[in-house]
């Protein structure tokens, strides 16, 4: 009796061909993008999206052509942080035009497809045992965001990943081209405990680790502008050194920073002279250098705001 491999094709559906076509479409779309960079942590609540937005804006403000994809399908926040929440992307036969954000940033997010502020992402389909298919649907949505958005020519596409240590390996399996990832962590032990798992998970599929960013490294006093410690210092640099990845810099916690995010006004543009902005601009410059020269700075080099 014949086996599976003895029978050519699949009877007529050509499912494999349909998947190949999806991949081809993705490759064609991404061919006009110089560098695709994912921002990840694995841990929720560390400020990935705020870092993604301000990093992207800092790159755009430096004259680069930048796209920003909110790959957090269930908890999209990038549209609000970039001030484009409520806008609708234009749908053309050849693709979907991304919404134009600050500094010419091209933004795409699930948020742009939802009806109202309190609308969750709900898929049509059998509600019972939805775990069988829901994650597959989410990855299909990410693939369509990548392949069907009219990104045009970009220097950088920044992908803001949702929490979960499996997110980057899944994304790297989907993307024909991913230049690397940036990990974000808080200085807290529990945050680093999870983030180091994400770093290891990124290594398995061979994703290049471009660096580690320390968010909320200390409290920036609005009055005296002094940086007060929130956690014991030096831990994140030590983690970067242990993992052998560049330490890109530290972002202080500044209440004005989070207020600016709530208003949809990235701090890099709103307060370019602030220490937080300086940190993002420095980190963006380091990232550009790493990607341009494909060389890594010393693992524990000090960047960003000095404590």
């Amino acid at each position: 009796m014949k086996t599976y491999r003895d029978i050519a094709g699949d009877g007529g559906s050509d499912i494999a061909g349909q998947v190949v076509e999806q991949t081809r479409r993705l490759s064609v779309r991404l061919s006009s993008i110089q560098h695709a960079v994912a921002v990840m942590s694995g841990k929720g609540g560390v400020g990935k999206s705020a870092v993604s937005v301000n990093l992207a804006v800092a790159l755009a403000a430096a004259g680069c052509r930048v796209g920003l994809l909110d790959a957090d399908i269930n908890g999209p926040s990038v549209a609000k942080m970039t001030g484009v929440h409520g806008q609708r992307p234009t749908i053309l036969p050849e693709g979907v035009v991304p919404v134009s954000g600050p500094a010419g940033l091209k933004v795409m997010s699930m948020d742009l497809f939802l009806a109202s502020d309190d609308s969750p992402v709900e898929w049509q389909g059998p509600s019972s045992e939805a775990y069988v298919w829901r994650q597959t649907m989410e990855m299909t949505a990410v693939r369509e965001f990548l392949s069907d958005t009219l990104w045009g020519d970009l220097d950088y596409l920044v992908l803001d990943l949702p929490p979960g240590t499996d997110r980057l390996p899944n994304l790297s399996g989907l993307l024909p081209k991913l230049d690397g990832c940036v990990a974000v962590t808080l200085p807290s032990e529990i945050s680093q405990f999870v983030v180091q798992k994400s770093i290891q998970a990124a290594r398995t599929p061979g994703v290049r680790l471009l660096g580690l960013i320390e968010n909320m490294s200390g409290y920036l006093c609005p009055g005296c502008q002094g940086l007060q410690p929130l956690f014991p210092s030096g831990r994140v640099e030590a983690l970067a050194a242990r993992q052998g990845i560049p330490y890109l810099g530290r972002i202080p916690f500044d209440p004005r920073f989070s207020e600016a995010m709530d208003r949809g006004c990235p701090v890099v543009l709103g307060k370019p002279d602030s220490p937080v902005s300086a940190a993002f601009i420095s980190i963006a410059a380091s990232l550009r250098n790493i990607l341009a020269h494909r060389t890594s700075p010393p693992p524990s080099s000090h960047r960003g705001v000095s404590s």
Partner: peptide
């Protein structure tokens, strides 16, 4: 473009 996403989003939330 984005056919799967747009056709699969629940009408209530889309």
């Amino acid at each position: 473009p984005m056919a799967a996403l747009r056709s699969s989003l629940s009408a209530a939330g889309a």
